[in-house]
Design a protein around this nucleic acid. Sequence first.
DNA 1: CGTGCACTTTGACGTGGATCAAGCTGGCGC
DNA 2: GCGCCAGCTTGATCCACGTCAAAGTGCACG
Lengths: 246, 246
Amino acid sequence: MTDLGFNAKDCGTCPIQHRAVCARCETDELATLEAMKYYRSFEAGQPIVWSGDRMDFVGSVVTGVASLSQAMEDGRTQMVGLLLPSDFLGRPGRAAAPYDVVAVTNTTLCCFRRKPFETMMGATPHLAQRLLEMTLDELDAAREWMLVLGRKTAREKIASLLAIIARREASLAPERGQDDMSFDLPLTREAMADYLGLTLETVSRQVSALKRDGVIVLDGKRRIVIPDFDALVAETGDDVDGGVFA
Amino acid sequence: MTDLGFNAKDCGTCPIQHRAVCARCETDELATLEAMKYYRSFEAGQPIVWSGDRMDFVGSVVTGVASLSQAMEDGRTQMVGLLLPSDFLGRPGRAAAPYDVVAVTNTTLCCFRRKPFETMMGATPHLAQRLLEMTLDELDAAREWMLVLGRKTAREKIASLLAIIARREASLAPERGQDDMSFDLPLTREAMADYLGLTLETVSRQVSALKRDGVIVLDGKRRIVIPDFDALVAETGDDVDGGVFA
DNA sequence: CGTGCACTTTGACGTGGATCAAGCTGGCGC
DNA sequence: GCGCCAGCTTGATCCACGTCAAAGTGCACG
């Protein structure tokens, strides 16, 4: 919630708006975006917006992890997206948030107020095209996840989730090879269950099973080491190169 | 595959490109789009494109139903979208099709070659914005479906599918009230199963159960009559107004 | 250095939907 | 009119995952 007071120029730590949204912007457009942006941070567990709420900003994740989820009246919930650093949040042209957005870990967003952003979009054709690109990527990810939810076994679901997170982590720190990957799981067992359409007990059992079978190594409850990424991918049911977010 | 030879002006039957894609186009842009468009038709069961294929057109469905689906190596398949009349197919800026697209019933598409369409998009800012809108709608539909796949029971899944189709049918023929809805199911039990992440036997049993309970009436195997739409919606597990594609 | 509490693991048991296996039904070609 | 066959239904059985219950773990706080 608090404004971090980052210098607007201090974007070594914020690859977001320049490269992700506006890679082809001219200098003056870049400067306009720069001048408009501001930061917000949220603590782990804090809601960012509720489904149906008015949402007057768009932005992207600088650090941390946020989740998008939908709930049924009786309490069943399904996570429909996971926002990792560089992912975009919000939708130009739409006032109401379609999902609950919650900070899973401590999270910093780089934001723009929606109205001026929309105005800018109208004046900058490739901004709209860039947003379209990003939305198509989200759509592909959502549909890939439909396959996971509809057709995969519990073990394959867990492996798919770990593979996605491992890939994302690797792309954020590309200097390391893809052997000996390791990362801190940002999700509780319950959050994993909500993403995978399982119960937390089933998640726990399958994580234990993957550990027992040597596919993953646990260091504490959250730190995951993946000794052989290909072995993990083999557990997902996907063909080797076609996988999720390929 | 065959060109139907429809008159390019004959767009009473083709509400697609004018209103869906280009509602705000100026007259000359409209004329340009008109001149570029052509029709293709496919018979029930025919593939339109395979996943990974080069796809040199974009378009939308004029009549019929097509499906988007993904397959795993071992044959498990998940339908990730259903294209009904007025739905858009294809993605500007991307050469490769990400899913298998199959004509479920006899289908007619209104197409544009991709390259000139992209050029036009670059020159016509609101075309890109309109495409973004449509893609966001698809994204919402995909995520709504993730809730169906991840958290609903077989009976709720069937009810959700019937409710979606009934709503779409009603919006195509809005003169009829929403009591006494009826329509021909365009999908086989197997296709329904692929969409819902079930087996065809389970689909058959749950359809029978909904019939036994008076939620739906079957006239033959394909014609569905819905005596009370609200009763159907009550079976979906959604809250009354929040439902899929709300 | 306990005590509390959120998170996780593990066990025992139940069940919804998958699987396997017959039939049935209705449209179409001959 | 008859046979064929794709699509559908129904039954019997199985098993992956859910449910309920009880410990275990480790970090934060006194």
